[in-house]
């Protein structure tokens, strides 16, 4: 980047510069406009649904379009449950693969493995969903059936539901967490490792003492990225979660997330209030994602060790 102190002498050139910079500025400002318009448009589209339901839109637990009752709370819960479950599954696995690639594997192994993990990120959501329906779902169904038979819990083993959705989500977000973690772990200066070794630490202790604390801000950033993806993920979740309107009451239960309910109900939304309620859920998702984004940037700044540039 550069700030020029040369003043163009010819007026033609300086007007060319001015024109160009206005064009570029305009394009860049479009970005601001776009963000603003997201809020404005979703608000205008969703206002009818919001005002018609009032506060019960967020607090009520019934979604019953046939009777004109619209409450998004079950889906907020559904999003929360699947996202958290996915993170719990994904974080240790992603970190394990990141540590394997950076600290344990010899060079000839770490490159291909790294590439393979990144490939997971390239698979589109709808393909995950297709695989989810025809491969994962039957497997989870069998597992649930086994649990049901062995323990007699009063849950219906169908395969569809939050369990499959969470597992699928976990697989989808692992590469994001892993890839960022890999990058920040690589950036930890070697003398941090050596300092830990020189104190008489085992390899794992070096990772635990010298590497992970140093890289924690970046790893957290990767986790947030994964969280954002998990919250926004639509197709794959819709295809396996069962699309029930209630809050999931047990691990085998079906449910919906904010994104899956919009996707699955949209084609059935006939009256304007229905459509508007769906748009309002979209507005909720927008607000959530911006808040998560902001909070994460604050936390990352707090977690970054003093003097470290990530």
């Amino acid at each position: 980047m550069t700030s020029t102190t040369l003043k163009p002498k010819r007026s033609r050139a300086s007007s060319g510069d001015a024109l160009f910079s206005y064009v570029i500025l305009g394009l860049a400002l479009l970005i601001l406009l776009v963000v603003l318009s997201y809020f404005v448009l979703l608000l205008s589209g969703g206002i009818q649904g919001l005002t018609a339901s009032g506060i019960s839109f967020i607090t009520g637990t019934t979604w019953d379009p046939a009777n004109g009752v619209y409450s998004a709370f079950p889906f907020i819960v559904g999003t929360f449950i699947t996202a958290v479950a996915a993170l719990i599954l994904a974080i240790p696995l992603a970190l394990a693969s990141a540590l394997f690639i950076t600290e344990y594997a010899p060079r000839w192994l770490s490159e291909p493995v790294g590439y393979l993990v990144e490939l997971l990120a390239a698979i589109p959501s709808v393909v995950y969903g297709l695989w989810g329906i025809f491969v994962l779902l039957p497997l989870v169904g069998k597992f649930q059936l086994w649990v049901y038979q062995k323990t007699g819990v009063p849950w219906t083993p169908s395969g569809y539901g939050v369990m499959t959705a969470s597992i699928l989500l976990a697989i989808m977000i692992i590469p994001f967490i892993a890839s960022i973690s890999r990058d920040v772990i690589r950036l930890v200066p070697n003398d941090q490792r050596e300092a830990a070794y020189a104190l008489g630490a085992t390899k794992w202790e070096v990772i635990r003492t010298g590497i992970l604390p140093y890289a924690r801000a970046g790893i957290f950033g990767g986790i947030i990225l994964g969280l954002g993806r998990a919250i926004g993920e639509t197709l794959a979740v819709t295809m396996v979660i069962g699309n029930a309107y209630k809050i999931p009451s047990n691990p085998f239960a079906q449910g919906s997330t904010m994104s899956s309910i919009i996707a699955s109900q949209f084609s059935e939304a006939t009256d304007p209030r229905f459509v508007s309620s769906l748009v309002a859920i979209g507005l909720l998702m927008l607000v959530f994602s911006v808040v998560v984004n902001y909070v994460s940037s604050v936390v990352i700044r707090k977690l970054t060790p003093a003097g470290v540039r990530l």
Binding site: D191, E194, A195, A198, L199, G200, A201, G210, P213
Partner: peptide, 17 residues
């Protein structure tokens, strides 16, 4: 060994966190 033979490095490297 590394407990019995300690090392100090060229660039100070305390654990920053």
């Amino acid at each position: 060994i590394r407990k019995r033979i300690g090392m100090v490095f060229q660039k100070p490297n305390p654990f920053p966190t």
